[in-house]
Lab assay of single mutants.
Amino acid sequence: TTFEIRVGDLRITLHNADEEEIRWAEEALRRGIHADEILRTLEERRR
């Protein structure tokens, strides 16, 4: 599944994310964390 998060002009697309990952990514985007860093962190958490 694919889920797109939008916060203002910012956007990130997550693939195969669970609800916790989606909530975490949305909050991180709101705090101004760059999408590349969010994706990198999620990848590390999945390992």
Results as ranks from 00 to 15, higher is better:
1 T>S: 06
1 T>K: 14
1 T>A: 13
1 T>W: 13
1 T>R: 13
1 T>Q: 11
1 T>F: 11
1 T>H: 13
2 T>Q: 09
2 T>W: 15
2 T>R: 10
2 T>A: 15
2 T>C: 13
2 T>S: 14
2 T>D: 12
2 T>K: 11
3 F>P: 02
3 F>K: 10
3 F>E: 09
4 E>K: 01
4 E>Y: 04
4 E>S: 01
4 E>G: 00
4 E>P: 04
5 I>M: 06
5 I>P: 01
5 I>S: 01
5 I>N: 02
6 R>E: 13
6 R>T: 14
6 R>I: 15
6 R>L: 14
6 R>H: 11
6 R>V: 14
7 V>K: 02
7 V>F: 12
7 V>W: 10
7 V>C: 12
7 V>Y: 14
7 V>T: 04
7 V>H: 07
8 G>L: 03
8 G>P: 01
8 G>F: 03
8 G>H: 04
8 G>W: 03
9 D>H: 13
9 D>L: 02
9 D>T: 01
9 D>I: 09
9 D>P: 08
9 D>W: 04
10 L>V: 15
10 L>R: 12
10 L>K: 13
10 L>E: 13
11 R>V: 11
11 R>H: 15
11 R>C: 06
11 R>M: 15
12 I>T: 02
12 I>Y: 14
12 I>F: 10
13 T>D: 04
13 T>G: 03
13 T>N: 06
13 T>V: 14
14 L>M: 07
14 L>A: 01
14 L>H: 00
14 L>I: 10
14 L>Y: 02
14 L>V: 13
14 L>D: 00
15 H>F: 13
16 N>D: 12
16 N>L: 04
16 N>G: 09
17 A>D: 02
17 A>W: 04
17 A>T: 11
17 A>G: 04
18 D>H: 08
18 D>F: 13
18 D>N: 11
18 D>E: 05
18 D>S: 13
19 E>V: 11
19 E>R: 09
19 E>K: 11
19 E>G: 09
20 E>G: 13
21 E>D: 09
21 E>P: 00
21 E>S: 04
22 I>E: 02
22 I>H: 04
22 I>T: 06
22 I>M: 06
22 I>W: 05
23 R>E: 14
23 R>Q: 11
23 R>K: 14
23 R>W: 08
23 R>P: 01
24 W>Q: 01
24 W>R: 01
24 W>H: 01
24 W>G: 00
25 A>C: 04
25 A>R: 00
25 A>N: 00
25 A>M: 06
25 A>Y: 02
25 A>W: 03
25 A>D: 00
25 A>P: 00
25 A>Q: 00
26 E>K: 14
26 E>S: 08
26 E>C: 06
27 E>G: 08
27 E>V: 01
28 A>H: 05
28 A>M: 08
28 A>Y: 05
28 A>W: 12
29 L>R: 01
29 L>I: 09
29 L>W: 04
29 L>N: 03
30 R>Q: 12
30 R>G: 09
30 R>V: 10
30 R>E: 07
30 R>K: 14
30 R>S: 15
30 R>I: 14
30 R>M: 13
30 R>N: 10
31 R>Y: 10
31 R>F: 12
31 R>L: 10
31 R>D: 13
31 R>A: 14
31 R>P: 00
32 G>Q: 02
32 G>H: 04
32 G>D: 03
32 G>Y: 02
32 G>F: 04
33 I>L: 05
33 I>H: 07
34 H>T: 12
34 H>G: 14
34 H>A: 04
34 H>R: 09
34 H>C: 07
34 H>S: 13
34 H>Y: 13
34 H>W: 09
35 A>Y: 10
35 A>I: 09
35 A>Q: 11
35 A>P: 15
35 A>G: 07
36 D>M: 09
36 D>P: 11
36 D>Q: 07
36 D>N: 08
36 D>C: 10
37 E>C: 05
37 E>H: 10
37 E>G: 03
37 E>P: 01
38 I>Q: 00
38 I>N: 00
38 I>R: 00
38 I>W: 00
38 I>V: 12
38 I>Y: 01
39 L>F: 15
39 L>S: 06
39 L>Q: 08
39 L>T: 08
40 R>T: 13
40 R>N: 11
40 R>W: 14
41 T>L: 12
41 T>W: 13
41 T>C: 04
41 T>E: 15
42 L>M: 03
42 L>Q: 01
42 L>I: 15
42 L>P: 00
42 L>W: 02
43 E>H: 06
43 E>P: 00
43 E>M: 11
43 E>G: 04
43 E>A: 06
43 E>N: 04
44 E>V: 08
44 E>L: 06
44 E>S: 05
45 R>W: 15
45 R>I: 15
45 R>E: 06
45 R>P: 01
45 R>N: 14
46 R>T: 02
46 R>L: 04
46 R>K: 07
46 R>W: 06
47 R>P: 08
47 R>F: 15
47 R>C: 14
47 R>D: 12
47 R>L: 15
47 R>I: 15
